[in-house]
Design a protein around this nucleic acid. Structure first.
Lengths: 213, 213
DNA sequence: GACTGCTGTTACCGCAAGTAACTAGCATGT
DNA sequence: ACATGCTAGTTACTTGCGGTAACAGCAGTC
């Protein structure tokens, strides 16, 4: 059973790791993203160097922390993208899923989207560091789904990627603004955004006395 | 000439301030947003406390630094929004203006959009701090322009704000992605985004063998 | 000449990231 | 029985940054 023991050990460290992640999450959700490594270690009942052994550096810890939520959110969105109904229904369902997610756990949202990193990570490569990858992943994912399902002419794939990132950005910025001010219901917000995607911008009439067409 | 002298003094400190800002800009553009106050002071040929006298704290310096570029960019976009042609022309011109701006000075762009702040700012209120305000301002501005010019029914203002933030987010995320990979020309990108806003998502046909409508 | 207000300095505090060096438990190979 | 090697843990340190006294020189003003 030597491999069995080996395996036990591995899963044990694995478990420890997720325990540490949960402690980190508690602290981050309480103190914001500026939580110190000391504070996190204390919450986990240990001291700093162990955190560093597990996650390399602070950025590593945060990346591990972000990955969990990111994966969960993406799964939710994928599910909404497969919901029943016509295309408009699915788009609205996806918008709802996203907005509902950021609405129910704004702390997590802020951590994922506005991390306020401070590492000295500027070694040439790896430019997009940490605050964007979620947006990027969502954009790429949505682009793939669009390319799979829609026929957009000869360069469907390219158009789909552009649209994927564009739509995700629309969702993101509108959601971020809405989450701060809440000037309308989620339902209305979703409808207005879907209207925008459905070409109402092109169809709308000019206002009386406004310049140009 | 006492007020004259007074005035001289004020403009002198004013000038000093912009000199410091220019030094700061040089360093930030060279070293990224993690540039230390020491480094900036050194570049300006002075020492830290003077920077603090002028700008309060690091966040203040960065805010002052950001304001210049933000104002300039917003002016450019406003101009594009007033360009001649029909509505689609103006939308494309605005997208071009934005993308061209971030393309010609990506360093500035990265500073404005991904600042990586590190202040101890978590005093309850005023959650959205410093990394988003440009997006917010662009969204609000665009929303106002839309509300001024378009007739969107009874709650035009609300719809316009939603659309303003949404469109800005679309521009932002697509631009951010595009700036990193450059998989297509700026012209094409603009066209695809405008197509998206013009309702082509709703009109597109299903791909053969794809699920649902 | 004393006062004000600016420029600038050196020298420090506090704190967070990250590291070095070491100890203790525990299963293994010989 | 014993050395080996792995992991979890510690204390005590270095480095570097943001930020702040406290002080010095040098205008122009009353």
């Amino acid at each position: 059973m030597e491999t069995g023991q080996r395996h036990e050990q591995q899963t044990a460290t694995q478990r420890r790791r997720t325990e540490l992640l949960e402690a980190a999450e508690r602290v981050v959700l309480r103190d914001g993203p500026e939580a110190s490594m000391n504070a996190i270690a204390a919450e986990a009942g240990i001291t700093k160097p162990i955190l560093y052994r597990h996650f390399g550096d602070k950025s590593g810890l945060y990346r591990a922390l972000a990955k969990r939520h990111t994966d969960a959110l993406l799964a939710t969105l994928r599910a909404a993208l497969d919901s029943p109904g016509d295309r408009r229904d699915r788009v609205e369902a996806t918008l709802h899923a996203y907005l509902s997610a950021i609405e129910t756990r704004p702390q997590v949202y802020r951590f994922l989207m506005h991390p306020a990193e401070t590492p000295s990570d500027e070694r040439g490569f790896d430019v997009g560091r940490h605050s964007v990858p979620l947006l990027r992943r969502m954009g790429e994912d949505l682009g793939e789904v669009i390319a799979e399902r829609l026929d957009l002419g000869p360069d469907t794939r390219q158009v789909a990627r552009v649209w994927g990132h564009g739509i995700v950005g629309m969702m993101y910025a509108a959601g971020d603004w809405w989450l701060g001010e809440r000037p309308l219901s989620r339902d209305l917000l979703v409808r207005h955004l879907a209207d925008l995607l459905w070409g109402r911008l092109a169809e709308a009439g000019d206002r009386a006395g406004s310049p140009g067409l």
